Simulated scan of single mutants.
Amino acid sequence: MTELLSVDIQRIMEMIPHRYPFLLIDKVIDIAPGESATGIKNVTMNEPQFTGHFPQQPIMPGVLIIESMAQTAAILVVQTLGEGAEGKLVYFMSIDSARFRKPVTPGDVMHIQVVKKQSRGPVWKFESQVKVDGQVVAEATIAAMIRDN
């Protein structure tokens, strides 16, 4: 049985170049290198997007939910490829079949699961699903390419 790994926020910042306010995962758990990972995002009212989306009824923008999927996938890629991949950029190539099932609001904890579907050279493809309280709130198929900065 493979031991599942996890990384905290400090390690995430060593692995990918994103920073506040665009670092959209707080930790990554259950990493099975080359296979899958689960990111955790604690959604809080003090995040800058909520001043305008929407002031009277704050809702996490769908594009930021998709970005949290990509960041979780990037951690999986770096963990799989090793230290030589740390700090490299992971660029979106495609987002397919994106669906948003339920709004995500402050106080929610997003569990972002990514599962590798394929990788060919620097191109990786993932199925991703986001759950809050065990209920699917978003899903998408994403493809990305890892590149030197």
Rank of each mutant, 00 (worst) to 15 (best):
M1A: 14
M1W: 14
T2Y: 12
E3V: 13
E3H: 10
L4I: 08
L5P: 06
L5M: 14
V7M: 12
I12E: 07
M15Y: 08
I16N: 07
P17S: 03
Y20K: 10
P21Y: 03
I29H: 01
P33R: 01
P33G: 07
G34N: 03
G34D: 02
A37I: 04
T38I: 14
I40H: 09
N42F: 09
N42V: 13
F54Y: 15
F54P: 06
P58L: 06
I59E: 08
I59T: 07
P61Y: 02
G62Y: 04
G62P: 01
V63P: 03
V63Y: 06
I65V: 15
E67K: 07
A70C: 11
Q71H: 09
T72W: 02
L76P: 04
V78H: 04
Q79M: 12
T80A: 01
E83H: 00
G84S: 14
A85I: 10
A85D: 05
E86H: 11
K88Q: 08
L89S: 12
V90Y: 09
V90D: 05
S94G: 10
S94Q: 09
I95M: 00
S97W: 05
S97G: 11
A98R: 02
A98D: 02
A98K: 02
A98V: 00
F100P: 00
R101E: 04
K102W: 01
P106E: 00
G107D: 01
G107L: 01
D108L: 13
V109A: 05
V109D: 01
M110P: 00
H111N: 14
I112W: 09
Q113M: 10
Q113R: 15
V114L: 06
V114H: 06
K117T: 13
P122Y: 00
P122L: 13
K125S: 14
K125Y: 11
K125D: 09
K125P: 02
E127I: 10
Q129F: 07
V136L: 04
E139L: 09
M145N: 12
I146H: 11
I146V: 13
I146T: 10
D148E: 13
D148R: 10
